[in-house]
């Protein structure tokens, strides 16, 4: 048993270092964005427009862009994912169900940039021609592709939470003469609400955190979008676009505020999922 303590220290060191990275990221965002917290400047981030040439550095348009794109994507993806999950784990058509499940698993592996690339050359011209105005790069285009990106994650998560219902409950429902769909509506659905909420939050986190889809397809105009066909810029795309600026400029410091905000949003979602999980009595991912 002699060498064990040294090895344990080594393993513990690796775990501690890995865990500390998430704290270091937060620390760097706060320290490098520190100049923004002085003199009430921080509040003006949320009220000013983004006009660096006039000394105005508000990011409210980007916040609106992020919320708009990800909510729309979620609204599009949620019913689709629920339907697919029902088909895969409740209706279970013998061949098609397996095929769909494999396809969904495969879809989680499609590179984001490839999905964005297809969006640029397939969906953008289509939207432009259908609606006849603008460049075709808008809130709707980005949200549609983003929905395709997050749907597979949601479907697999939903299927997983459906399969957690104890078999004895399902047999009881069968014994009472429930049709599969009645079993779903009265037994499975009410008992997997936490899982559904967890999957939805996870997908929302993916949508908020994704950079490439919005950067390639949303148009990146600095104005809060008011309609589906308005261009929008998300916080993530803003970071990618501004990063080329001079490192010492205030413009550059603003992206740490964006980073901090994104960190806070995803942190809140992670905590929420963990909270739901604890209520569920087990780890789901």
């Amino acid at each position: 048993m002699k060498p064990a303590p040294a090895a344990e220290k080594l393993f513990f060191g690796a775990a501690l270092f890995s865990a500390s990275i998430s704290l270091f990221i937060l620390l760097f965002m706060v320290v490098l964005g520190l100049p923004l917290f002085k003199d009430g400047f921080f509040l003006r981030l949320f009220t000013d427009p983004w006009r660096p040439d006039h000394g105005l550095y508000g990011i409210s348009a980007m916040i609106a862009g992020t919320l708009g794109v990800s909510f729309l994507a979620l609204v599009l993806a949620l019913p689709l994912s629920l339907g697919c999950a029902i088909l895969i784990s409740i209706i279970r058509p013998p061949v098609f169900g397996r095929l769909l499940e494999k396809t969904v698993q495969f879809m989680t592996g499609i590179p984001t940039v490839v999905l964005g690339f297809v969006g640029v050359f397939l969906l953008v011209p289509f939207i432009r021609e259908q609606f006849g105005h603008g460049s075709g790069r808008c809130l709707l285009t980005a949200a549609l592709v983003l929905a395709v990106l997050i749907a597979p994650t949601m479907i697999l998560f939903f299927c997983d939470s459906f399969s957690r219902i104890p078999a004895s409950w399902l047999r009881a429902a069968d014994a009472l003469g429930c049709t599969p769909m009645e079993k779903f509506r009265h037994v499975i659905l009410p008992n997997s609400l936490q899982g559904l909420a967890g999957g939805t939050i996870l997908a929302m986190g993916r949508a908020v955190g994704d950079t490439m889809i919005a950067l390639m397809l949303a148009g990146n105009a600095v104005a809060a979008p008011h309609a589906l066909l308005d261009p929008a810029r998300t916080l993530t795309a803003h970071i990618a676009l501004v990063v080329a600026a001079d490192f010492d400029s205030l413009e550059f410091k603003i992206i740490f505020a964006c980073g901090l905000l994104l960190y806070a949003i995803t942190l809140a979602m992670t905590l929420l999922i963990r909270g739901l999980d604890r209520g569920n009595g087990g780890r789901t991912w």
């Binding site: 990221i25 965002m29 955190g209 980073g259 994104l262 960190y263 995803t266 992670t270 999922i273």
Partner: peptide, 16 residues
């Protein structure tokens, strides 16, 4: 902390 790190958007990790 691993869960938090898994949730951090990749662009924020790039920024880090």
């Amino acid at each position: 902390f691993f869960d938090i790190l898994a949730g951090v958007p990749s662009i924020v990790i790039g920024l880090f």
